[in-house]
Amino acid sequence: MLKRAVLLGAYVLFVLLPIYWLVNMSLQTNREILGALTLWPENLTFANYIKIFTSSSWYMGYVNSIIYVLMNMAISMSVALPAAYAFSRYQFIGDKHLFFWLLTNMMAPPAVFLLPYFQLYYTIGLFDTHIAVALAHCLFNIPLAVWILEGFMSSVPKEIDETAFIDGYSFPRFFLRVFMPLIRSGIGVTLFFLFMFSWVELLLARTLTSTQAQPIASVMTRTSTASGIDWGTLAAAGVLTIVPGIVVVFFVRRHIAKGFALGRT
């Protein structure tokens, strides 16, 4: 038992050490960072954080990222729910091919779509808007959502649908009142994954925006200036990008153990 705890502790330490170092850097001044190596901040300072929270070009990066992530979650969820229901309940012409083709979209490297996306969104006038990034992230998030939800929906017995229809429920009412509460944990896990993959993506988000909808990831590149890299601010900005993730994982922590297997255990 003790051996297990030590081994697990070693892994958790391995996970936390680089993050601790980032937090450590973010609480130091650049002079302390570049001076002698210190294992903890000796002159504790919040100047780096204050700089980010008082400059709109900095904090708008976070706001922009959160806006397009939320938009993407809403769009992906609203089209994936009915589609996943169709895949889990009905047989229709081409269903297997369609499902497989959908999954192949998850395998498409974002770098492949860089140029066509840029041209497409530029032509229809969506370049540098939040909705452009949200739509672009649908490329991998819709297939993912359909895939996860289909797994959860298939574990709900079909008799429930049939009973509800006999009881006189219309399809929309059945779906919202009966079915969605049943797959609550599945929806929670799906939202978690949608958040995760949209929040961490950089390549498409950076290419499709310039100033109005710039994500935090590309704002962070401004820390390297002619006089060197502003390590303190870079570290503080990095720490702040982890915070939304912690909030989200805290909300779904009860479902995560079951849900990570995407309803397929």
Partner: peptide
């Protein structure tokens, strides 16, 4: 669980 999940949620 929360600690182990952390790296997955970092951009």
């Amino acid at each position: 669980l929360i600690l182990v999940t952390l790296p997955l949620l970092i951009p």
